[in-house]
Design a protein around this nucleic acid. Structure first.
Length: 405
DNA sequence: TCTGGGGTCCTAGGACCC
DNA sequence: TCTGGGGTCCTAGGACCC
């Protein structure tokens, strides 16, 4: 019998921070803010003092935070105030002004990410990466993976991760990835849930459609307009109606997931499709008035992206840009070039051409650059001579102000 | 008081080829 | 000369996820 686990680290970023700052345990803490006050607190430490010696009162508070940004993670005490991830910092400050805010430290989270994944791999080799804090694990052929429907193995992994890192996680074990993903949320934090095929009606059907991985805000809203709130109500609609209403692929998929069917394999290896860098400015910038600043930011993003590609050993041939205007609307442009590249100057130049094709009247809040159509550096594909494809004229520039780039 | 950064996949139209 | 269908690549936007 197929047994698939979904493992989700509990409040991952925040939990990693609490390992450094145990004095903050039990307090509302959010991750997502600026660096300065924490740096000051570290600098003010007495000789020989550790991070754990920083007095709680020295940490920055949400109410003193000014600036843009969102919460990436909130500790469980902070969640009691209604704070959640992706929430704007200003809104979170209203809900819980006394919450402590810490800056994001991706390098540290990546270290712990590698650590917990290595522990899993020692026990179960079929693991699929789903980002820093999540994985799927195929329990089916792991010795002991079937015992108690997978509960024993889940417990073993959970304990091993905690012993090695001090971090807790929640695990769902089910017949497939779809159900496992939902099950891992049943018992958070530090929980295990085992779901069988025959639990569909009692444990899955009562859930709101939004809990299905793949049904987002838009699809959920449309479902609600037809009176469909739960997975069970979705399962009650006939397939043809779903196909007629949501389209061939989406409708059929919805019918399958509502009946708990999902045969996607656990995928252990995958190649990246694109890499990108983007930044939201401290204040909105204008293409004309802030031309020099924008140009410098863009160059820097291209250099960072080129360095990412080179470090990871990839080249790409579709260069793209992304803008977010002050009204939050997004525009993208891209252009495919003749040769694969990871060169900052080439990316910068082609990105500059893309920028000439996009409207630049409105103030901008974000600028990004992307390289897609990736190949491994040095691979036969990446080395193929240019001009073998169909020749296509580059799109015309539409913007005049954009020539400033 | 607005809303980060890094991704994947899908759709849809047009170009172009067979 | 006209008609057509399939396949692939390119581009833009959008939904969704972590």
């Amino acid at each position: 019998m197929r047994r698939i686990a979904h493992l989700d680290m509990d409040a991952f970023y925040a939990s990693v921070e609490l390992l450094r700052y145990p004095q903050l345990k039990g307090l509302p803490v959010v991750i997502g803010g600026g660096r300065r006050r924490v740096d000051e607190a570290i600098r003010d430490l007495p000789e020989g003092g550790t991070l754990a010696d920083i007095p709680v009162a020295a940490f920055p508070l949400l109410k003193d935070y000014t600036g843009r940004g969102v919460i990436t993670t909130a500790t469980y005490p902070a969640r009691q105030f209604g704070i959640g991830s992706a929430m704007g910092l200003m809104k979170a400050a209203k809900l819980c002004p006394q919450a402590i805010i810490l800056p994001v430290d991706f390098d540290e989270y990546r270290r712990y990410s590698r650590a917990f994944k290595n522990i899993i791999l020692e026990v179960a080799p079929l693991m699929e990466d789903r980002g820093v804090d999540e994985v799927y694990i195929d329990f089916t052929d792991v010795p002991g993976g079937q015992r108690d429907g997978g509960r024993s193995l889940a417990r073993l992994i959970q304990t091993a991760i905690f012993d090695a890192t001090g971090l807790t996680c929640s695990i769902g074990v089910a017949p497939n990835k779809l159900i496992a993903k939902m099950a891992s949320e049943f018992n958070k934090p530090n929980g295990i849930s085992v779901v069988y095929e025959h639990d569909l009606e009692t444990r899955i059907w009562p859930l709101p459609c939004r809990k299905v991985n793949g049904i987002g805000p838009k699809a959920d809203e449309k479902l609600k307009r037809f009176g469909i709130e739960t997975v069970g109500q979705l399962a009650a609609r006939d397939r043809d109606w779903l196909v007629a209403t949501f389209g061939k692929a989406t409708g059929a998929w919805m019918h399958e997931v509502a009946w708990g069917r999902d045969n996607r394999p656990v995928v252990t290896e995958s190649e990246p499709v694109s890499m990108s860098r983007e930044t939201t400015f401290d204040r909105d910038l204008h293409a004309v008035r802030d031309r020099a600043e924008l140009g410098a930011i863009f160059t820097h993003l291209c250099e960072q992206l080129a360095a990412d590609l080179q470090r990871k050993g990839y080249v790409g041939k579709t260069i793209g840009i992304k803008l977010r205007y002050d009204d939050f609307k997004i525009a993208t442009r891209d252009q495919t070039i003749e040769r694969f590249t990871s060169d900052a100057k080439t990316i910068r130049h082609t990105g500059g051409l893309c920028l000439k094709r996009v409207p630049l009247e409105r103030p901008l809040r974000l600028l990004g650059v992307r390289v897609g159509a990736l190949a491994k550096a040095g691979s036969p594909e990446a080395m193929a001579p240019a001009g073998t494809g169909v020749h296509r004229a580059a799109p015309e520039a539409v913007s005049t102000t954009a020539s400033l780039f």
